[in-house]
């Protein structure tokens, strides 16, 4: 207790310290007195940026979907009309929308099936070092270059590429030829078929399904599984009645990503697949060479509306808790 004497030996007048001088002291006091002002100052730059740059652009885009293009002059007629939306319903355009939504749904479904074992293993069995390894094992492909990933598949799916070579070595080339001969899914080679597009979509968006799924599976308490086994359930029954319902929010969250990303992508079907268009490609084509910004804008409204419906449904399943 040697320091006791030096502590607490102050006069009564110093209970309140004097104001600090200078602009710093005044600024600090002002921000203390008006916490709202500080909040406003902090929020202003990001909100202004996002509201002006981003929301402004989005609104401008939406606005243009109500314009139309003059078919003879190719100029944009800036008067309000629903004509452009009407064009969306043309068979050729409807075809594009149906194709894209079907692909998004298939990719989402397949991603869920492939992601589940990885997520389940990482959440329930992987420990310590393995857990970190699994986490990185999903994060690295997620963050690796999108174009490089697509490029890698162009190498794999090429006619002279590794997959054909592998199937030949296994004497299964007839299987590939048979598949490619099928209508819709087939084509002259895998990299020029809808199957190829599907595989690449699945590959590129898979990590976006694994992460939220794993997050929701982490929250399934192990003792719940034991309780189920204790009550005489087989592993299959436990899975169906306990694990799956609890994983559903994560599944829904992951599917938001896979669905939305597939809906909006225009690069993958451009590089790998048939010449049939997806929504993204249609948007790109209409705004670019055709110069039909109104139709391109109307096309972008489709994924927004589809995603809106999807989010509304997912929210009812509690998907946002797992994001």
């Amino acid at each position: 207790m040697s320091a006791v004497g030096t502590i607490g030996a102050a006069g009564p007048s110093d209970a309140i310290l004097p104001k600090r001088g200078g602009w710093r002291g005044r600024l600090a006091d002002l921000l203390w007195r008006r916490p709202g002002l500080l909040l406003l100052l902090m929020l202003m730059p990001p909100v202004l940026w996002l509201a002006v740059v981003y929301l402004g652009s989005l609104l401008a885009l939406l606005l243009q979907s109500f314009f139309s293009i003059d078919e003879f002059s190719g100029l944009i007629d800036r008067s309000f009309t629903l004509k452009t939306y009407g064009e969306l319903l043309r068979p050729a355009n409807l075809d594009i929308i149906v194709r894209t939504v079907t692909m998004a749904a298939l990719v989402t479904l397949a991603a869920a099936v492939v992601a589940f074992p990885i997520a389940y293993f990482a959440a329930r069995y992987a420990r310590g070092k393995w857990k970190a390894l699994f986490y990185l094992g999903v994060m690295l492909p997620l963050w690796s270059s999108y174009l490089v990933k697509v490029y890698a598949w162009k190498l794999i799916l090429a006619k002279e590429g590794i997959l054909t070579w592998l199937l030949q070595k296994l004497h299964l080339a007839w299987l590939l030829d048979g598949w490619l001969a099928l209508p819709v899914v087939g084509g002259s080679s895998l990299s020029l078929s809808a199957t190829g597009t599907f595989v690449v979509f699945l590959y590129v968006w898979l990590p976006f399904m694994i992460l939220p799924l794993q997050a929701s599976l982490e929250r399934v308490p192990a003792n719940l599984l034991e309780a189920s086994a204790d009550l005489g359930a087989t592993p299959q029954q436990t899975f169906r009645n306990v694990v799956f319902p609890l994983a559903l929010p994560g599944l829904a969250a992951g599917s938001i990503f896979t669905f939305s990303l597939t809906l909006g992508d225009y690069i993958i079907p451009q590089i790998i697949g048939t010449s049939r268009l997806f929504i993204g490609q249609a948007v790109y084509a209409h705004q670019g060479t055709a110069g039909n910004i109104p139709l391109a804008a109307a096309f972008t409204v489709v994924p927004i509306v589809v995603m809106g419906l999807y989010l509304w449904g997912a929210r009812r399943m509690g998907a946002f808790d797992a994001l």
């Binding site: 981003y54 652009s57 809906l263 909006g264 993204g280 391109a296 972008t300 994924p303 927004i304």
Partner: peptide, 10 residues
């Protein structure tokens, strides 16, 4: 939102 929307909006 899909990147294409951000892109074309900008």
């Amino acid at each position: 939102l899909p990147g294409i929307i951000t892109g074309i909006a900008l």
